[in-house]
Simulated assay, not measured.
Amino acid sequence: MSTVSKKRVAILISGRGSNMGALLDAAVDPAYPIEIAGVISDTPGAAGLGIAAARGVPVQVIARADHASKDAHDGAIDAAIAELNAEIVALAGYMRLLTTPFVEKWQGRMINIHPALLPSFKGLDTHRRALEAGTRLHGCTVHFVTPQMDDGPIIAQAAVPVMIGDDADTLAARVLKAEHGLYPMALKLVAEGKARMQGGRTVFSGLAEDTANGDASLSAPGPLREEIDLEQLARITP
């Protein structure tokens, strides 16, 4: 029996660790090419730390308040990642901007998930802003991290409809469900070298076999697509 080569991944969180949980769930599969090396939070008491620890994943708090500068803080995080022997960094609700030297060191090996269809709605409060803009489609994006906020090359996206009567909470719940499917798929592509950052763009390779299995739709992974009421979808545009 062949053994799957697994990349060691460090996950950075600031809060509940919802997407972290999705990655932990995916990593349970022996065929998934990822080993979660550890979880690091900048927030003491972040709910995600308890979830990860309960599943036997090493956790560590590196608080900004314990360091004299942003550079020192990011240096401590980098040292912790090195101790974990991590090869990839996955930001999963990490709410602090990282310094340029840290980002440049990990460029091409650090990814993030953002709750909007980039390049639209960078930053915070994406669901409220999408509703205020009157968009009929919203969603989430996994991208490589660059020094500019929410501006790195896109790896994969999943779109969801904006329903009549949605508020920020109902729309956020729909997007979050899509995030939990999209992030493990995108991380898998990066770990397998099928999605890589090159020349400021995402370059894809080796997807033909996966396409035959319905797993390579980079806009909404086939087996993970959210079921949408077509009659309701037909009514989203007045």
Results as ranks from 00 to 15, higher is better:
Ile77Cys: 06
Glu35Ala: 12
Ala72Tyr: 02
Ile81Phe: 00
Leu137Asn: 09
Val28Asn: 14
Thr141Lys: 01
Leu218Glu: 08
Ser120Asp: 14
Gly134Ala: 10
Ile36Asp: 12
Ala168Ser: 15
Thr146Asn: 12
Gly206Arg: 14
Ala133Glu: 11
Glu179Leu: 07
Leu12Tyr: 06
Asp29Ala: 11
Glu83Cys: 04
Ala86Lys: 00
Gly21Pro: 01
Thr43Asn: 15
Ser18Trp: 04
Leu23Gln: 00
Arg64Thr: 11
Ala195His: 11
Met149Arg: 01
Val103Leu: 09
Ala208His: 10
Ala37Lys: 04
Leu233Arg: 02
Pro147Arg: 04
Leu207Gln: 06
Gly93Cys: 07
Val59His: 02
Ser14Leu: 08
Lys122Trp: 05
Thr146Gln: 07
Thr202Lys: 12
Arg174Ser: 10
Gly93Asn: 02
Asp210Cys: 05
Leu218Thr: 07
Arg128Asn: 12
Gly214Ser: 06
Thr99Trp: 01
Met110Phe: 00
Ala186Tyr: 10
Ala92Pro: 03
Ala76Gln: 08
Gly181Cys: 07
Arg235His: 08
Gln232Cys: 02
Pro153Cys: 13
Pro161Phe: 10
Thr211Val: 07
Ala116Val: 01
Thr99Ala: 00
Arg225Tyr: 05
Thr99His: 01
Ile77Met: 05
Val160Arg: 01
Asn85Gly: 15
Gly50Met: 05
Gly108Ser: 13
Ala158Trp: 05
Val103Ile: 15
Glu227Tyr: 10
Gly56Ser: 06
Asp25His: 11
Gln157Thr: 14
Gln60Ile: 02
Thr146His: 07
Ala22Asp: 05
Asn213Pro: 00
Ser219Ala: 10
Val145Asn: 04
Asp151Thr: 00
Leu176Trp: 09
Gly214Met: 07
Gly139Ile: 02
Glu132Ala: 14
Val28Pro: 09
Ile40Trp: 04
Ile154Gly: 11
Gly200Ala: 11
Gly181Gln: 13
Asp166Thr: 04
Ala47His: 08
Gly38Lys: 04
Pro153Trp: 14
Glu192Asp: 15
Asp78Glu: 06
Pro153Leu: 14
Asp74Pro: 08
Leu49Lys: 13
Leu171Lys: 10
Leu131Gln: 03
Gly15Glu: 03
Glu192Phe: 05
Arg136Gln: 12
Ala133Trp: 13
Ser217Ile: 05
Ala86Met: 06
Asn112Val: 03
Phe121Ile: 10
Ala156Trp: 04
Leu49Glu: 06
His143Trp: 02
Val4Lys: 13
Ala27Lys: 09
Glu227Pro: 04
Ala172His: 10
Thr146Gly: 09
Thr126Ser: 10
Pro147Asp: 11
Glu179Thr: 05
Ala220Gln: 13
